[in-house]
Design a protein around this nucleic acid. Sequence first.
RNA 1: UGACCCAUGGUGUAACGGUAGCACUACAGAUUUUGGUUCUGUCUGUUAAGGUUCGAAUCCUUAUGGGUCAACCA
Length: 556
Amino acid sequence: MEDSKKTLNFIEEIIEEDIRNGKHGGRVHTRFPPEPNGYLHIGHAKAICLNFGLAVKYKGKANLRFDDTNPVTEDTEYVEAIKTDIRWLGFDWEDREYYASDYFERLYQFALQLIDTGKAYVDDSSSEEIAAMKKGPTEPGIESPYRNRSADENHQLFLRMRAGEFPEGSKVLRAKIDMTSPNMHLRDPLLYRILYKEHHRTGNKWCIYPMYDFAHGQCDSIEGITHSICTLEFENHKPLYNWFIRELGIFPSQQYEFARLNLSYTVMSKRKLLKIVNEGLVEGWDDPRMPTIAAFRRKGYTPASIRNFASLVGVAKRDNVIDLSLLEHSVREDLNKIALRMMVVKDPLPVTLTDYKLNGELVEIENNPEDESQGTRPVTFSRNLLIEREDFMEDAPSNFFRLKPGGMVRLKGAYIILCNEVVKDAHGRILELKCSHIPESRSGNDHSGIKVKSTIHWVDAGTSIDVELKLYDRLFRVEDPNGEDDFMQFINPESLEIVKYARAEAALQKPDPGKHYQFVRLGYFKLDHGFRDGVPVFNRTVTLKDGWAKSKHKSN
RNA sequence: UGACCCAUGGUGUAACGGUAGCACUACAGAUUUUGGUUCUGUCUGUUAAGGUUCGAAUCCUUAUGGGUCAACCA
Protein backbone atom coordinates (compact mmCIF):
# COMPACT_ATOMS: atom_id res chain seq x y z
CA MET A 1 0.00 0.00 0.00
CA GLU A 2 2.82 2.36 0.95
CA ASP A 3 4.94 1.53 -2.02
CA SER A 4 4.27 -0.35 -5.17
CA LYS A 5 7.29 -2.46 -5.87
CA LYS A 6 8.32 -2.92 -9.47
CA THR A 7 8.47 -6.66 -9.13
CA LEU A 8 5.36 -8.65 -8.38
CA ASN A 9 4.97 -11.40 -5.84
CA PHE A 10 3.65 -14.69 -7.12
CA ILE A 11 0.07 -13.92 -6.14
CA GLU A 12 0.13 -10.60 -7.95
CA GLU A 13 1.47 -12.41 -10.99
CA ILE A 14 -1.45 -14.82 -10.88
CA ILE A 15 -3.91 -11.97 -10.49
CA GLU A 16 -2.45 -9.96 -13.34
CA GLU A 17 -2.51 -13.05 -15.53
CA ASP A 18 -6.16 -13.60 -14.60
CA ILE A 19 -6.98 -9.97 -15.36
CA ARG A 20 -5.26 -10.26 -18.75
CA ASN A 21 -7.33 -13.34 -19.48
CA GLY A 22 -10.52 -11.62 -18.42
CA LYS A 23 -11.19 -14.25 -15.78
CA HIS A 24 -14.34 -13.34 -13.81
CA GLY A 25 -14.50 -10.20 -15.93
CA GLY A 26 -11.18 -9.05 -14.50
CA ARG A 27 -12.75 -8.82 -11.08
CA VAL A 28 -10.54 -9.18 -7.95
CA HIS A 29 -12.27 -10.09 -4.72
CA THR A 30 -10.40 -11.33 -1.64
CA ARG A 31 -11.31 -11.96 1.95
CA PHE A 32 -9.69 -12.07 5.35
CA PRO A 33 -11.23 -14.97 7.30
CA PRO A 34 -10.25 -14.93 10.99
CA GLU A 35 -11.68 -17.36 13.48
CA PRO A 36 -12.91 -15.33 16.47
CA ASN A 37 -11.12 -17.44 19.04
CA GLY A 38 -8.09 -15.29 19.84
CA TYR A 39 -6.37 -12.02 19.14
CA LEU A 40 -4.80 -11.13 15.84
CA HIS A 41 -1.01 -11.19 15.71
CA ILE A 42 1.64 -9.76 13.42
CA GLY A 43 1.31 -12.80 11.16
CA HIS A 44 -2.35 -11.95 10.66
CA ALA A 45 -1.27 -8.40 9.92
CA LYS A 46 0.69 -9.74 6.98
CA ALA A 47 -2.39 -11.59 5.71
CA ILE A 48 -4.60 -8.54 6.25
CA CYS A 49 -2.21 -6.27 4.38
CA LEU A 50 -2.00 -8.85 1.60
CA ASN A 51 -5.73 -9.38 1.15
CA PHE A 52 -6.88 -5.80 1.64
CA GLY A 53 -3.81 -4.46 -0.15
CA LEU A 54 -4.54 -6.57 -3.22
CA ALA A 55 -8.09 -5.28 -3.31
CA VAL A 56 -6.83 -1.69 -3.20
CA LYS A 57 -4.12 -2.29 -5.78
CA TYR A 58 -6.42 -3.98 -8.29
CA LYS A 59 -9.47 -1.85 -7.54
CA GLY A 60 -11.35 -4.84 -6.22
CA LYS A 61 -12.97 -5.69 -2.92
CA ALA A 62 -11.92 -7.42 0.27
CA ASN A 63 -14.44 -8.95 2.67
CA LEU A 64 -14.09 -9.49 6.37
CA ARG A 65 -15.49 -12.89 7.16
CA PHE A 66 -15.49 -14.50 10.55
CA ASP A 67 -14.95 -18.21 10.26
CA ASP A 68 -17.17 -19.06 13.18
CA THR A 69 -18.08 -22.71 12.72
CA ASN A 70 -16.87 -23.93 16.11
CA PRO A 71 -19.09 -22.58 18.92
CA VAL A 72 -16.89 -24.20 21.56
CA THR A 73 -13.95 -21.82 21.24
CA GLU A 74 -15.40 -18.70 19.69
CA ASP A 75 -16.67 -15.54 21.29
CA THR A 76 -17.89 -12.05 20.42
CA GLU A 77 -15.13 -10.56 22.56
CA TYR A 78 -12.73 -11.69 19.87
CA VAL A 79 -14.96 -10.43 17.08
CA GLU A 80 -14.77 -6.90 18.47
CA ALA A 81 -11.03 -7.06 19.10
CA ILE A 82 -10.40 -8.28 15.57
CA LYS A 83 -12.45 -5.49 14.03
CA THR A 84 -10.62 -2.91 16.13
CA ASP A 85 -7.26 -4.23 14.99
CA ILE A 86 -8.10 -4.28 11.29
CA ARG A 87 -9.50 -0.76 11.41
CA TRP A 88 -6.45 0.42 13.30
CA LEU A 89 -4.22 -1.04 10.61
CA GLY A 90 -6.05 1.24 8.23
CA PHE A 91 -8.30 -1.10 6.28
CA ASP A 92 -12.00 -0.89 5.56
CA TRP A 93 -14.35 -3.71 4.69
CA GLU A 94 -17.21 -1.23 4.21
CA ASP A 95 -20.49 -3.13 4.53
CA ARG A 96 -18.96 -6.51 3.78
CA GLU A 97 -18.80 -7.94 7.27
CA TYR A 98 -19.79 -11.57 6.96
CA TYR A 99 -19.93 -14.64 9.16
CA ALA A 100 -19.76 -18.26 8.18
CA SER A 101 -22.66 -18.67 10.58
CA ASP A 102 -24.74 -16.42 8.31
CA TYR A 103 -24.52 -19.22 5.76
CA PHE A 104 -25.46 -22.15 8.00
CA GLU A 105 -28.78 -22.68 6.25
CA ARG A 106 -27.18 -22.63 2.79
CA LEU A 107 -24.40 -24.93 3.89
CA TYR A 108 -27.04 -27.27 5.23
CA GLN A 109 -28.74 -27.24 1.83
CA PHE A 110 -25.39 -27.95 0.16
CA ALA A 111 -25.05 -30.96 2.44
CA LEU A 112 -28.47 -32.24 1.42
CA GLN A 113 -27.49 -31.78 -2.21
CA LEU A 114 -24.43 -33.98 -1.74
CA ILE A 115 -26.48 -36.56 0.15
CA ASP A 116 -29.11 -36.69 -2.59
CA THR A 117 -26.49 -37.17 -5.29
CA GLY A 118 -24.93 -40.00 -3.31
CA LYS A 119 -21.82 -38.02 -2.44
CA ALA A 120 -22.29 -37.90 1.32
CA TYR A 121 -23.43 -40.29 4.01
CA VAL A 122 -24.24 -40.41 7.68
CA ASP A 123 -21.75 -42.44 9.68
CA ASP A 124 -22.63 -43.92 13.08
CA SER A 125 -19.03 -44.84 13.87
CA SER A 126 -17.33 -43.33 16.89
CA SER A 127 -14.56 -40.84 16.40
CA GLU A 128 -12.02 -43.50 17.43
CA GLU A 129 -13.41 -45.94 14.89
CA ILE A 130 -13.32 -43.35 12.15
CA ALA A 131 -9.74 -42.47 12.96
CA ALA A 132 -8.79 -46.15 12.95
CA MET A 133 -10.41 -46.76 9.57
CA LYS A 134 -8.68 -43.75 8.05
CA LYS A 135 -5.30 -45.32 8.88
CA GLY A 136 -2.08 -43.43 8.35
CA PRO A 137 -0.74 -41.51 5.34
CA THR A 138 1.47 -44.39 4.24
CA GLU A 139 -1.27 -47.00 4.00
CA PRO A 140 -4.75 -46.96 2.50
CA GLY A 141 -7.76 -46.56 4.74
CA ILE A 142 -10.81 -48.81 4.84
CA GLU A 143 -14.40 -47.98 4.21
CA SER A 144 -16.95 -47.46 6.94
CA PRO A 145 -19.71 -50.08 7.27
CA TYR A 146 -22.21 -47.21 7.01
CA ARG A 147 -20.75 -45.93 3.76
CA ASN A 148 -23.34 -47.49 1.47
CA ARG A 149 -26.56 -46.34 3.05
CA SER A 150 -29.10 -45.22 0.51
CA ALA A 151 -29.41 -41.56 -0.37
CA ASP A 152 -32.88 -41.64 1.04
CA GLU A 153 -31.84 -43.09 4.38
CA ASN A 154 -28.98 -40.59 4.62
CA HIS A 155 -31.37 -37.77 3.84
CA GLN A 156 -33.75 -38.82 6.60
CA LEU A 157 -30.96 -39.34 9.11
CA PHE A 158 -29.42 -35.94 8.38
CA LEU A 159 -32.81 -34.24 8.85
CA ARG A 160 -33.09 -35.99 12.22
CA MET A 161 -29.53 -34.96 13.14
CA ARG A 162 -30.54 -31.37 12.65
CA ALA A 163 -33.74 -31.93 14.59
CA GLY A 164 -31.73 -32.95 17.61
CA GLU A 165 -32.82 -36.58 17.74
CA PHE A 166 -29.34 -37.96 18.30
CA PRO A 167 -26.85 -37.43 21.09
CA GLU A 168 -23.66 -35.44 20.62
CA GLY A 169 -20.95 -37.46 18.91
CA SER A 170 -23.22 -40.29 17.88
CA LYS A 171 -23.31 -39.50 14.17
CA VAL A 172 -21.46 -37.44 11.62
CA LEU A 173 -22.00 -36.55 8.00
CA ARG A 174 -19.11 -37.52 5.74
CA ALA A 175 -18.30 -36.95 2.09
CA LYS A 176 -17.99 -40.12 0.03
CA ILE A 177 -14.70 -39.69 -1.80
CA ASP A 178 -11.83 -42.17 -1.56
CA MET A 179 -10.65 -44.02 1.53
CA THR A 180 -7.45 -45.05 -0.25
CA SER A 181 -6.38 -41.57 -1.30
CA PRO A 182 -2.78 -40.70 -0.38
CA ASN A 183 -4.21 -37.32 0.58
CA MET A 184 -5.75 -37.85 4.02
CA HIS A 185 -8.22 -35.03 3.47
CA LEU A 186 -9.89 -37.01 0.74
CA ARG A 187 -10.54 -40.10 2.91
CA ASP A 188 -14.22 -39.36 3.39
CA PRO A 189 -13.77 -36.12 5.32
CA LEU A 190 -16.25 -35.11 8.01
CA LEU A 191 -18.74 -32.48 6.94
CA TYR A 192 -20.96 -32.06 9.97
CA ARG A 193 -20.82 -33.00 13.64
CA ILE A 194 -23.50 -32.91 16.32
CA LEU A 195 -22.78 -30.32 18.98
CA TYR A 196 -25.27 -29.17 21.58
CA LYS A 197 -23.44 -25.90 22.14
CA GLU A 198 -24.71 -22.38 22.07
CA HIS A 199 -23.20 -20.37 19.25
CA HIS A 200 -22.23 -16.76 19.89
CA ARG A 201 -24.38 -15.60 17.00
CA THR A 202 -26.94 -18.29 16.21
CA GLY A 203 -27.63 -19.21 19.82
CA ASN A 204 -29.31 -22.60 20.09
CA LYS A 205 -30.74 -22.63 16.60
CA TRP A 206 -28.35 -25.35 15.48
CA CYS A 207 -27.12 -28.56 17.01
CA ILE A 208 -25.11 -29.58 13.97
CA TYR A 209 -22.15 -27.51 12.84
CA PRO A 210 -20.16 -27.69 9.60
CA MET A 211 -16.45 -28.44 9.65
CA TYR A 212 -13.90 -25.99 8.28
CA ASP A 213 -13.45 -27.81 4.99
CA PHE A 214 -17.15 -27.89 4.29
CA ALA A 215 -17.61 -24.24 5.21
CA HIS A 216 -14.66 -22.28 3.98
CA GLY A 217 -14.70 -22.89 0.26
CA GLN A 218 -18.45 -22.67 0.01
CA CYS A 219 -18.42 -19.35 1.88
CA ASP A 220 -15.80 -18.10 -0.56
CA SER A 221 -18.00 -19.24 -3.38
CA ILE A 222 -21.16 -17.66 -1.98
CA GLU A 223 -19.34 -14.34 -1.67
CA GLY A 224 -17.90 -14.59 -5.16
CA ILE A 225 -14.33 -14.56 -3.88
CA THR A 226 -11.99 -14.79 -6.86
CA HIS A 227 -8.71 -15.30 -5.03
CA SER A 228 -8.91 -17.12 -1.72
CA ILE A 229 -5.52 -16.60 -0.13
CA CYS A 230 -4.47 -18.73 2.81
CA THR A 231 -1.36 -20.11 4.43
CA LEU A 232 0.69 -23.12 3.36
CA GLU A 233 -0.79 -25.64 5.77
CA PHE A 234 -4.00 -25.61 3.75
CA GLU A 235 -2.23 -26.72 0.60
CA ASN A 236 -3.28 -30.33 1.16
CA HIS A 237 -6.88 -29.18 1.55
CA LYS A 238 -7.04 -27.70 -1.93
CA PRO A 239 -8.16 -30.88 -3.74
CA LEU A 240 -11.03 -31.08 -1.27
CA TYR A 241 -11.80 -27.37 -1.64
CA ASN A 242 -12.07 -27.93 -5.37
CA TRP A 243 -14.03 -31.17 -5.00
CA PHE A 244 -16.86 -29.44 -3.12
CA ILE A 245 -17.05 -26.62 -5.63
CA ARG A 246 -17.14 -29.08 -8.50
CA GLU A 247 -19.69 -31.47 -6.99
CA LEU A 248 -21.94 -28.62 -5.90
CA GLY A 249 -21.55 -26.77 -9.18
CA ILE A 250 -21.05 -23.43 -7.51
CA PHE A 251 -18.91 -20.35 -8.22
CA PRO A 252 -15.31 -21.51 -8.66
CA SER A 253 -13.29 -19.56 -6.12
CA GLN A 254 -9.65 -20.56 -6.18
CA GLN A 255 -7.32 -21.06 -3.29
CA TYR A 256 -3.71 -19.88 -3.26
CA GLU A 257 -1.27 -20.49 -0.45
CA PHE A 258 1.61 -18.37 0.84
CA ALA A 259 4.08 -18.88 3.68
CA ARG A 260 2.96 -17.51 7.00
CA LEU A 261 5.09 -14.98 8.82
CA ASN A 262 7.40 -16.11 11.59
CA LEU A 263 9.27 -13.57 13.68
CA SER A 264 12.47 -14.29 15.55
CA TYR A 265 12.39 -14.36 19.36
CA THR A 266 8.66 -14.96 19.55
CA VAL A 267 5.98 -17.53 18.84
CA MET A 268 2.99 -17.07 16.62
CA SER A 269 0.63 -19.94 17.34
CA LYS A 270 -2.58 -18.96 19.09
CA ARG A 271 -2.31 -22.00 21.32
CA LYS A 272 1.11 -20.99 22.58
CA LEU A 273 0.16 -17.34 22.99
CA LEU A 274 -2.92 -18.38 24.91
CA LYS A 275 -0.77 -20.47 27.21
CA ILE A 276 1.55 -17.53 27.89
CA VAL A 277 -1.46 -15.38 28.72
CA ASN A 278 -3.15 -18.03 30.86
CA GLU A 279 -0.04 -18.76 32.88
CA GLY A 280 0.26 -15.09 33.74
CA LEU A 281 3.67 -14.59 32.16
CA VAL A 282 2.35 -11.41 30.61
CA GLU A 283 -0.48 -9.05 31.57
CA GLY A 284 -2.75 -10.17 28.77
CA TRP A 285 -3.18 -10.34 25.01
CA ASP A 286 -2.14 -6.71 24.65
CA ASP A 287 0.91 -6.89 26.88
CA PRO A 288 3.56 -5.06 24.86
CA ARG A 289 5.80 -8.11 24.87
CA MET A 290 3.24 -10.11 22.90
CA PRO A 291 3.37 -10.27 19.09
CA THR A 292 -0.31 -9.32 18.83
CA ILE A 293 -1.49 -6.29 16.91
CA ALA A 294 -3.08 -4.98 20.11
CA ALA A 295 0.27 -5.29 21.87
CA PHE A 296 2.18 -3.45 19.16
CA ARG A 297 -0.44 -0.71 19.25
CA ARG A 298 -0.09 -0.36 23.02
CA LYS A 299 3.67 -0.43 22.77
CA GLY A 300 3.61 2.51 20.40
CA TYR A 301 3.98 1.02 16.94
CA THR A 302 2.22 2.92 14.17
CA PRO A 303 -0.11 1.32 11.61
CA ALA A 304 2.11 2.68 8.84
CA SER A 305 5.16 0.94 10.28
CA ILE A 306 3.38 -2.41 10.36
CA ARG A 307 2.02 -1.99 6.86
CA ASN A 308 5.49 -1.10 5.68
CA PHE A 309 6.91 -4.13 7.45
CA ALA A 310 4.36 -6.36 5.76
CA SER A 311 5.48 -5.01 2.43
CA LEU A 312 9.17 -5.47 3.27
CA VAL A 313 8.83 -9.13 4.22
CA GLY A 314 7.37 -10.05 0.87
CA VAL A 315 5.08 -12.89 -0.13
CA ALA A 316 6.41 -16.28 -1.16
CA LYS A 317 5.99 -19.98 -0.49
CA ARG A 318 9.09 -20.86 1.45
CA ASP A 319 9.18 -21.10 5.21
CA ASN A 320 10.80 -18.08 6.76
CA VAL A 321 11.80 -16.48 10.02
CA ILE A 322 11.95 -12.72 9.78
CA ASP A 323 14.51 -10.85 11.83
CA LEU A 324 12.95 -8.84 14.61
CA SER A 325 15.37 -6.10 13.55
CA LEU A 326 13.42 -5.60 10.34
CA LEU A 327 10.27 -4.77 12.29
CA GLU A 328 12.24 -2.47 14.57
CA HIS A 329 13.83 -0.80 11.58
CA SER A 330 10.40 -0.20 10.16
CA VAL A 331 9.00 1.45 13.27
CA ARG A 332 12.12 3.55 13.88
CA GLU A 333 11.97 4.85 10.34
CA ASP A 334 8.40 6.05 10.84
CA LEU A 335 8.84 7.35 14.37
CA ASN A 336 12.02 9.27 13.58
CA LYS A 337 9.97 11.50 11.31
CA ILE A 338 7.03 12.10 13.64
CA ALA A 339 8.09 11.64 17.26
CA LEU A 340 8.36 14.68 19.54
CA ARG A 341 11.72 14.88 21.25
CA MET A 342 11.73 15.18 25.03
CA MET A 343 14.43 14.79 27.63
CA VAL A 344 14.07 12.15 30.31
CA VAL A 345 16.77 10.97 32.69
CA LYS A 346 16.39 7.31 33.52
CA ASP A 347 18.95 7.07 36.33
CA PRO A 348 19.61 10.57 37.65
CA LEU A 349 22.98 11.85 38.80
CA PRO A 350 22.89 15.38 40.31
CA VAL A 351 25.09 18.02 38.73
CA THR A 352 25.67 21.36 40.44
CA LEU A 353 26.99 24.24 38.36
CA THR A 354 29.02 26.01 41.01
CA ASP A 355 29.68 29.05 38.84
CA TYR A 356 26.13 29.51 37.60
CA LYS A 357 24.77 32.71 39.12
CA LEU A 358 21.46 33.14 37.32
CA ASN A 359 18.23 32.15 38.97
CA GLY A 360 17.52 29.78 36.11
CA GLU A 361 16.68 30.52 32.47
CA LEU A 362 14.72 29.03 29.59
CA VAL A 363 16.44 27.45 26.63
CA GLU A 364 14.61 26.71 23.36
CA ILE A 365 15.04 23.15 22.10
CA GLU A 366 13.78 21.79 18.77
CA ASN A 367 10.93 19.31 18.98
CA ASN A 368 12.16 17.31 16.01
CA PRO A 369 15.43 17.92 14.20
CA GLU A 370 14.02 15.98 11.21
CA ASP A 371 11.06 18.31 10.90
CA GLU A 372 11.47 22.02 11.56
CA SER A 373 7.73 22.58 11.31
CA GLN A 374 7.30 20.87 14.67
CA GLY A 375 8.84 23.94 16.28
CA THR A 376 10.65 24.34 19.57
CA ARG A 377 9.80 24.31 23.24
CA PRO A 378 11.22 26.17 26.24
CA VAL A 379 13.05 24.03 28.79
CA THR A 380 14.11 25.25 32.23
CA PHE A 381 17.84 25.30 32.87
CA SER A 382 19.34 26.08 36.25
CA ARG A 383 22.22 25.62 38.67
CA ASN A 384 20.95 22.19 39.77
CA LEU A 385 20.58 19.60 37.09
CA LEU A 386 20.26 15.85 36.65
CA ILE A 387 22.16 13.89 34.05
CA GLU A 388 22.20 10.21 33.19
CA ARG A 389 24.43 8.33 35.60
CA GLU A 390 25.93 6.33 32.76
CA ASP A 391 26.91 9.52 30.94
CA PHE A 392 29.66 10.02 33.52
CA MET A 393 32.63 7.74 33.99
CA GLU A 394 35.41 8.27 36.44
CA ASP A 395 38.05 6.10 34.80
CA ALA A 396 36.97 6.54 31.25
CA PRO A 397 38.57 4.78 28.30
CA SER A 398 39.72 7.00 25.44
CA ASN A 399 36.71 6.13 23.33
CA PHE A 400 34.28 7.33 26.00
CA PHE A 401 33.16 10.72 24.72
CA ARG A 402 30.91 11.74 27.56
CA LEU A 403 31.64 13.40 30.90
CA LYS A 404 34.69 12.50 32.93
CA PRO A 405 36.71 14.29 35.61
CA GLY A 406 38.32 17.34 34.04
CA GLY A 407 36.37 16.69 30.83
CA MET A 408 33.77 18.66 28.97
CA VAL A 409 30.47 17.76 27.40
CA ARG A 410 27.58 19.72 25.95
CA LEU A 411 24.21 19.66 27.62
CA LYS A 412 21.69 19.34 24.79
CA GLY A 413 20.30 22.75 23.85
CA ALA A 414 22.21 24.54 26.61
CA TYR A 415 25.84 24.96 27.67
CA ILE A 416 29.12 23.11 27.60
CA ILE A 417 30.08 22.08 31.12
CA LEU A 418 33.33 21.07 32.73
CA CYS A 419 33.52 18.44 35.47
CA ASN A 420 35.61 19.75 38.37
CA GLU A 421 34.82 17.50 41.30
CA VAL A 422 33.27 14.14 42.05
CA VAL A 423 31.42 13.94 45.38
CA LYS A 424 31.10 10.45 46.88
CA ASP A 425 29.65 8.89 49.98
CA ALA A 426 31.48 6.64 52.42
CA HIS A 427 30.93 3.61 50.17
CA GLY A 428 32.40 5.31 47.15
CA ARG A 429 29.08 5.79 45.42
CA ILE A 430 28.98 8.95 43.37
CA LEU A 431 26.47 11.38 44.88
CA GLU A 432 27.02 14.47 42.84
CA LEU A 433 29.19 16.17 40.25
CA LYS A 434 30.40 19.71 40.77
CA CYS A 435 30.82 21.37 37.42
CA SER A 436 31.28 24.76 35.88
CA HIS A 437 29.78 25.99 32.64
CA ILE A 438 31.08 27.95 29.67
CA PRO A 439 28.76 30.97 29.45
CA GLU A 440 29.75 31.77 25.84
CA SER A 441 28.80 28.29 24.68
CA ARG A 442 25.04 28.73 24.94
CA SER A 443 23.24 26.85 22.18
CA GLY A 444 22.43 28.96 19.18
CA ASN A 445 24.88 31.62 20.32
CA ASP A 446 28.08 29.69 20.81
CA HIS A 447 31.23 31.76 20.41
CA SER A 448 33.32 29.76 22.85
CA GLY A 449 35.30 28.12 20.10
CA ILE A 450 35.26 24.91 22.11
CA LYS A 451 34.48 21.62 20.39
CA VAL A 452 33.24 18.73 22.49
CA LYS A 453 32.91 15.12 21.43
CA SER A 454 29.51 14.55 22.87
CA THR A 455 26.14 16.03 23.72
CA ILE A 456 24.08 14.52 26.53
CA HIS A 457 20.54 14.97 27.75
CA TRP A 458 19.61 16.43 31.13
CA VAL A 459 16.71 17.83 33.13
CA ASP A 460 16.38 20.64 35.63
CA ALA A 461 16.33 19.20 39.14
CA GLY A 462 13.73 21.61 40.47
CA THR A 463 11.08 21.60 37.75
CA SER A 464 11.41 18.06 36.41
CA ILE A 465 8.76 15.49 37.23
CA ASP A 466 8.61 11.78 38.00
CA VAL A 467 7.67 9.42 35.20
CA GLU A 468 7.55 5.66 35.06
CA LEU A 469 9.25 3.87 32.20
CA LYS A 470 8.45 0.34 31.08
CA LEU A 471 11.34 -1.03 29.08
CA TYR A 472 10.75 -4.18 27.09
CA ASP A 473 13.04 -6.83 25.76
CA ARG A 474 12.33 -9.84 23.55
CA LEU A 475 9.83 -12.35 24.94
CA PHE A 476 12.12 -15.33 24.30
CA ARG A 477 15.83 -15.79 24.85
CA VAL A 478 16.34 -17.81 21.70
CA GLU A 479 15.82 -16.89 18.09
CA ASP A 480 13.48 -19.74 17.29
CA PRO A 481 11.60 -20.93 20.39
CA ASN A 482 9.14 -22.98 18.38
CA GLY A 483 9.71 -26.34 20.00
CA GLU A 484 6.39 -28.07 20.48
CA ASP A 485 6.14 -28.43 24.23
CA ASP A 486 9.33 -26.98 25.59
CA PHE A 487 8.91 -23.46 24.24
CA MET A 488 8.05 -22.15 27.70
CA GLN A 489 11.55 -22.83 28.94
CA PHE A 490 12.95 -20.28 26.53
CA ILE A 491 10.91 -17.40 27.94
CA ASN A 492 13.12 -14.43 28.71
CA PRO A 493 12.80 -13.72 32.45
CA GLU A 494 14.04 -10.18 31.89
CA SER A 495 11.62 -9.12 29.20
CA LEU A 496 10.31 -6.22 31.29
CA GLU A 497 12.23 -3.64 33.27
CA ILE A 498 10.28 -1.02 35.15
CA VAL A 499 11.94 2.28 35.99
CA LYS A 500 9.61 3.69 38.61
CA TYR A 501 11.07 7.11 39.05
CA ALA A 502 12.74 8.49 36.00
CA ARG A 503 12.89 12.28 35.80
CA ALA A 504 11.36 14.09 32.87
CA GLU A 505 11.21 17.66 31.71
CA ALA A 506 8.10 19.43 32.95
CA ALA A 507 6.30 19.36 29.61
CA LEU A 508 5.66 15.65 30.15
CA GLN A 509 3.35 16.43 33.06
CA LYS A 510 0.49 16.39 30.57
CA PRO A 511 1.48 13.81 27.98
CA ASP A 512 -0.63 13.44 24.86
CA PRO A 513 -1.89 9.84 24.78
CA GLY A 514 -2.08 9.95 21.00
CA LYS A 515 1.48 11.17 20.48
CA HIS A 516 4.70 9.30 19.96
CA TYR A 517 7.70 10.64 21.80
CA GLN A 518 11.39 10.19 21.48
CA PHE A 519 13.08 10.49 24.83
CA VAL A 520 16.40 11.70 23.54
CA ARG A 521 19.00 8.95 23.44
CA LEU A 522 16.69 6.50 25.30
CA GLY A 523 14.29 5.47 22.58
CA TYR A 524 10.74 5.99 21.39
CA PHE A 525 7.97 6.01 23.97
CA LYS A 526 4.22 6.12 24.13
CA LEU A 527 1.93 6.71 27.08
CA ASP A 528 0.66 3.39 28.43
CA HIS A 529 -2.89 3.13 29.77
CA GLY A 530 -2.29 6.30 31.77
CA PHE A 531 -1.02 7.15 35.22
CA ARG A 532 0.04 5.28 38.33
CA ASP A 533 -0.49 7.37 41.48
CA GLY A 534 -0.36 10.52 39.39
CA VAL A 535 2.86 9.46 37.67
CA PRO A 536 2.59 9.08 33.89
CA VAL A 537 3.61 5.62 32.70
CA PHE A 538 5.36 5.22 29.35
CA ASN A 539 6.01 2.15 27.27
CA ARG A 540 9.22 2.05 25.33
CA THR A 541 8.26 1.27 21.74
CA VAL A 542 11.81 0.54 20.66
CA THR A 543 15.30 1.69 21.56
CA LEU A 544 17.37 3.93 19.37
CA LYS A 545 20.16 2.19 17.56
CA ASP A 546 23.13 2.37 19.84
CA GLY A 547 26.60 2.07 18.35
CA TRP A 548 28.21 2.77 21.71
CA ALA A 549 26.45 -0.09 23.46
CA LYS A 550 27.49 -2.36 20.64
CA SER A 551 31.17 -1.43 20.75
CA LYS A 552 31.11 -1.76 24.54
CA HIS A 553 29.62 -5.20 24.19
CA LYS A 554 32.35 -6.21 21.80
CA SER A 555 35.25 -5.11 23.99
CA ASN A 556 33.84 -7.02 26.97
C1' U B 1 9.21 -43.99 4.41
C1' G B 2 2.65 -42.34 0.85
C1' A B 3 1.01 -37.55 -1.19
C1' C B 4 1.76 -32.42 -1.67
C1' C B 5 4.95 -28.07 -1.19
C1' C B 6 9.70 -25.56 -0.72
C1' A B 7 15.32 -24.72 -1.56
C1' U B 8 19.42 -17.69 -3.93
C1' G B 9 24.59 -14.02 1.31
C1' G B 10 23.58 -14.10 8.58
C1' U B 11 17.81 -12.91 7.61
C1' G B 12 14.14 -11.94 3.95
C1' U B 13 13.15 -11.15 -1.14
C1' A B 14 14.11 -10.17 -6.80
C1' A B 15 16.20 -11.73 -11.45
C1' C B 16 10.37 -15.15 -16.06
C1' G B 17 17.15 -18.93 -20.75
C1' G B 18 21.52 -13.68 -21.46
C1' U B 19 25.88 -8.73 -16.11
C1' A B 20 22.97 -12.58 -9.42
C1' G B 21 20.03 -7.04 -7.61
C1' C B 22 17.30 -4.76 -3.34
C1' A B 23 16.14 -4.36 1.96
C1' C B 24 17.52 -5.61 6.95
C1' U B 25 21.79 -7.13 9.82
C1' A B 26 27.16 -6.78 10.53
C1' C B 27 31.63 -3.99 9.73
C1' A B 28 34.45 0.61 8.18
C1' G B 29 34.46 5.82 7.19
C1' A B 30 32.16 10.95 6.61
C1' U B 31 28.57 14.32 8.68
C1' U B 32 26.04 15.42 13.23
C1' U B 33 24.35 19.99 19.55
C1' U B 34 20.87 12.55 20.14
C1' G B 35 27.36 7.36 20.00
C1' G B 36 20.28 8.85 16.84
C1' U B 37 19.33 10.59 11.74
C1' U B 38 21.73 11.20 6.94
C1' C B 39 25.61 9.83 3.40
C1' U B 40 29.58 6.60 1.40
C1' G B 41 31.87 2.05 1.23
C1' U B 42 32.97 -3.32 2.56
C1' C B 43 32.02 -8.56 3.70
C1' U B 44 29.02 -12.74 2.72
C1' G B 45 24.88 -16.20 -1.90
C1' U B 46 22.30 -19.64 -6.46
C1' U B 47 21.92 -27.27 -1.61
C1' A B 48 24.54 -31.27 -4.64
C1' A B 49 25.42 -34.24 -9.00
C1' G B 50 24.15 -35.16 -13.86
C1' G B 51 21.55 -33.56 -18.42
C1' U B 52 19.37 -29.92 -22.34
C1' U B 53 21.50 -25.27 -24.45
C1' C B 54 26.00 -20.94 -27.77
C1' G B 55 24.50 -19.67 -22.77
C1' A B 56 21.08 -22.33 -16.68
C1' A B 57 19.66 -19.47 -10.23
C1' U B 58 15.94 -20.17 -14.08
C1' C B 59 14.21 -26.03 -18.06
C1' C B 60 14.69 -31.79 -17.15
C1' U B 61 16.39 -36.02 -13.90
C1' U B 62 18.18 -37.84 -9.44
C1' A B 63 19.93 -37.05 -4.68
C1' U B 64 20.04 -34.22 -0.20
C1' G B 65 17.76 -30.97 3.27
C1' G B 66 13.31 -28.60 5.22
C1' G B 67 7.89 -28.10 5.75
C1' U B 68 2.63 -29.88 5.71
C1' C B 69 -1.06 -33.89 6.21
C1' A B 70 -3.37 -39.41 10.05
C1' A B 71 -8.63 -33.11 15.29
C1' C B 72 -16.15 -34.66 15.49
C1' C B 73 -10.03 -27.48 15.44
C1' A B 74 -9.41 -23.65 11.89
